[in-house]
C-alpha cells in the first residue's frame, strides 16, 4: 500500500515535470520569430518531449502528456484556433508514431520523421476546413518536407537525450 502510493507520487511528479518542460519549450519557440511564413507552421521543439514520453513512458502516458501540454500551451500562448491546430496536428502525429513504434521495426529517427510530417498534415487538414480552401497541394508539399526536416532534427535530439536520461527517472 505504502509502496503503491509512493510510485503514484513519483508518476505524478514525472508527468508534471515533463509537461512543464514541454511548456518551457513552447514558450522558447514562441520567442523565435516564425521561420517559415506559413500560418501555424513551427519548428515543433515541444515534440521532443512527446517523443521522449513515448519512448520512456509508453503510448498512454505520451498521449496524456501530449493532450495536457497542448491544452496548457494553447491557453497560455495561443487562442482557440491555435488549440484546434495543435490538437489536430499533435494527435495525428502521435497516433502515427505510436502505430509505427508498435510494429517494432523502425528506429526512433524514422518514427520521428513520420511524426513531423503527420503533425503538419493534421494541421493542414484543419486549415483546409477553417479557411475553406481546397487547393492545399502547395502547402501540403512544402509542409510535408518541412515536417520531414523538423522530424529528423527532433529524432536526432531525442535520441541523444534518451541515451543520457536514466530510466530511473521514469520508472
Amino acid at each position: 500500500m505504502n509502496k503503491k502510493s509512493r510510485v503514484n507520487v513519483k508518476k505524478i511528479s514525472v508527468y508534471g515535470m515533463i509537461t512543464a518542460a514541454a511548456i518551457v519549450l513552447s514558450w522558447l519557440e514562441a520567442q523565435i520569430p516564425p521561420f517559415f511564413p506559413i500560418p501555424g507552421m513551427k519548428i515543433g521543439l515541444t515534440n521532443i518531449i512527446v517523443v521522449i514520453a513515448l519512448y520512456k513512458m509508453g503510448s498512454g502516458s505520451a498521449m496524456a502528456v501530449n493532450v495536457l501540454r497542448i491544452l496548457l500551451v494553447s491557453f497560455l500562448f495561443g487562442g482557440p484556433s491555435a488549440l484546434i491546430y495543435s490538437l489536430s496536428g499533435g494527435m495525428l502525429s502521435l497516433l502515427v508514431m505510436i502505430l509505427l513504434k508498435k510494429t517494432g521495426k523502425f528506429k526512433m529517427i524514422s518514427v520521428s520523421i513520420a511524426g513531423g510530417i503527420f503533425h503538419n498534415v493534421g494541421q493542414i487538414l484543419i486549415a483546409m476546413l477553417m479557411t475553406d480552401t481546397t487547393s492545399i497541394l502547395w502547402y501540403l508539399a512544402v509542409l510535408w518536407f518541412a515536417g520531414a526536416v523538423s522530424g529528423t532534427l527532433i529524432g536526432i535530439l531525442g535520441n541523444t537525450l534518451l541515451k543520457h536520461l536514466p530510466d530511473s527517472i521514469f520508472k
Partner: peptide, 14 residues
C-alpha cells in the same frame, strides 16, 4: 532496411 523503406515512401509521397 525498414527505416530506409519507410523514409523512402515518405519522400516519394512528398
Amino acid at each position: 532496411k525498414y527505416d530506409i523503406f519507410l523514409v523512402g515512401i515518405l519522400i516519394t509521397v512528398g
